[in-house]
Each structure stands twice: as structure tokens, then as C-alpha cells.
């Protein structure tokens, strides 16, 4: 199966400091790839590149076998990929307005049916008219995920989606991630600190350290029989940076 993303020799630096240096990374359609690693490893930068929000300094990124010129990514390609950030970043306005936002960007002004479905799925129906700024952290993150999923992206990028959430909200979000992947074969890249979450959700896991992909393997191999000594130490919970 041809990869959705193919990254080769991708680098990114900020203020002269190299943040990312990926020799090779392939991401396959319909898989959940968890990217784990310590803070500052370059995981969020990787997501921004995968969402075409930033350009790499060098190297190539292919999306569905098309080379991507980050200065001019076609809108129809950009709109197949969506990110949910760790901070829900909701727009001012109601929960419903947030859910309708992406649809309206696409010229779809009548999305009430889809909104109702999402509100039901995420247990947000009672909050449909609530202002976004009045929501709890868990509710806000559920709105952020619903706002992304209503767009039916073929690739969903999740940056620590359950960090700082209570177990109820974290479990609900994990359940939705699993459900959307199974029902629609949505390709999901999940950045997480939580190796238990990676183990529960992912088909494959990649370890990032200092901007490099150290090892990528299917979930069982990654946790039970990793190749790299740093991966072995990481899954044992030892400091690896």
C-alpha cells in the first residue's frame, strides 16, 4: 500500500537551532501512528509540517505520491488534513459556531445536521449554545475534536489531545479516535507523552529524540522487542535525553 506521507531528509531549524532532522518517515493510509518522545523532541513541529502549516528548510514531503511545495499547497490538499492541538484554541462564539466554522470556510452554510450528530457523539448536545469560553478543559477539547471531525479529514493530526484531561474525557476522546479510524479508515498521527495511550491506540509507534526518528515499529514490536537501545530505555520509563 502506497504511503499517504513520505518524508525524506526533512530538516527544520528555528533561530539557527535544528529542531527536526528526519531521514525517512512513511505514514500509511488508515493507520494510527503514535509519535512518542520527550518534550522538545520536535513532535509538534513534525505535525505542523504534516499539516502544511510550515515549510521544511530542506528535504522532501510527498503527500499521496505528490511532492509538496509548502509555499503553495493546493487548498484541496490542505483541506484533507486537520490538526487538533493540545490547547483546544476555540473561537469566540458558541459551541455550534465552532463546529460550523470549518464547514463555512468550505462554503457549506447548512451543516446543522452534521453539527447535531457531532454534538450527540461527543455528549455536547446540552452545551450547543454555550459560549466557548465558558467550557471546561475537557469539554473544550471535545469541541475541538468534534470541530475537526465534522470536516471528515482523510488525515487527522492529534497533538497531545488528552493531556491534562480527566480520565472520563480522556477515555471518551480515545474511544472517538479509535471509532473514527475504524469507521472511516482515517489516517491518524497521534503525538503523545503517554506511552500507555500509544500502546492502547496505535498500529505503529515512532520514537522521536532531538528531532530525529530513532525507531518506528508496529506497536507490539516497539514495546516488546525494540531494536534501538534508546527505545528499550524509553519504554522502560528511563530518561533517554
Amino acid at each position: 500500500m502506497a504511503p499517504v506521507y513520505q518524508l525524506a531528509n526533512v530538516t527544520k531549524a528555528y533561530s539557527g537551532r535544528q529542531i527536526l532532522h528526519i531521514n525517512q518517515l512513511d505514514i500509511y493510509p488508515g493507520e494510527i501512528l503514535a509519535v512518542v518522545g520527550p518534550s522538545g523532541a520536535g513532535k509538534s513541529t513534525l505535525l505542523r509540517l504534516l499539516n502544511f502549516l510550515e515549510a521544511p528548510d530542506s528535504g522532501s514531503i510527498y503527500f499521496n505520491q505528490q511532492p509538496i511545495n509548502h509555499q503553495n499547497v493546493p487548498l484541496e490538499i490542505r483541506r484533507t488534513v486537520t490538526t487538533v492541538f493540545q490547547n483546544p484554541a476555540l473561537l469566540s462564539g458558541s459551541v455550534t459556531a465552532n463546529l460550523l466554522f470549518g464547514l463555512r470556510l468550505r462554503g457549506q452554510n447548512d451543516g446543522q445536521k452534521e453539527v447535531d450528530e457531532m454534538l450527540e457523539r461527543f455528549g455536547l448536545a446540552a452545551l450547543r449554545r454555550s459560549p466557548a469560553h465558558a467550557l471546561s478543559g475537557g469539554e473544550a477539547q471535545r469541541v475541538a475534536l468534534a470541530r475537526a471531525l465534522i470536516l471528515k479529514p482523510s488525515v487527522l493530526l492529534l497533538d497531545e489531545p488528552t493531556a491534562n484531561l480527566d480520565p472520563y474525557n480522556a477515555e471518551m476522546i480515545e474511544s472517538v479516535i479509535r471509532g473514527i479510524n475504524q469507521a472511516h479508515q482515517t489516517t491518524i498521527v497521534l503525538v503523545t507523552h503517554n506511552i500507555f495511550q500509544a500502546r492502547r491506540l496505535a498500529d505503529r509507534v515512532a520514537l522521536m529524540l532531538n528531532g530525529e526518528i530513532i525507531e518506528t515499529a508496529d506497536t507490539q514490536t516497539f514495546f516488546e522487542n525494540p531494536r534501538d537501545s534508546r527505545t528499550r530505555r524509553f519504554v522502560r520509563g528511563e530518561m533517554v535525553w
Binding site: 487548498l75 483541506r79 488534513v81 490547547n87 484554541a89 470549518g102 470536516l151
Partner: peptide
């Protein structure tokens, strides 16, 4: 973050 999110949701 909000500006980034808006672009990520597909805004021109």
C-alpha cells in the same frame, strides 16, 4: 495558536 488552528481547519 488560534491563528494556526484556523489555518489547520482549511482557511485560505
Amino acid at each position: 495558536n488560534l491563528r494556526l488552528q484556523v489555518r489547520s481547519l482549511g482557511a485560505t
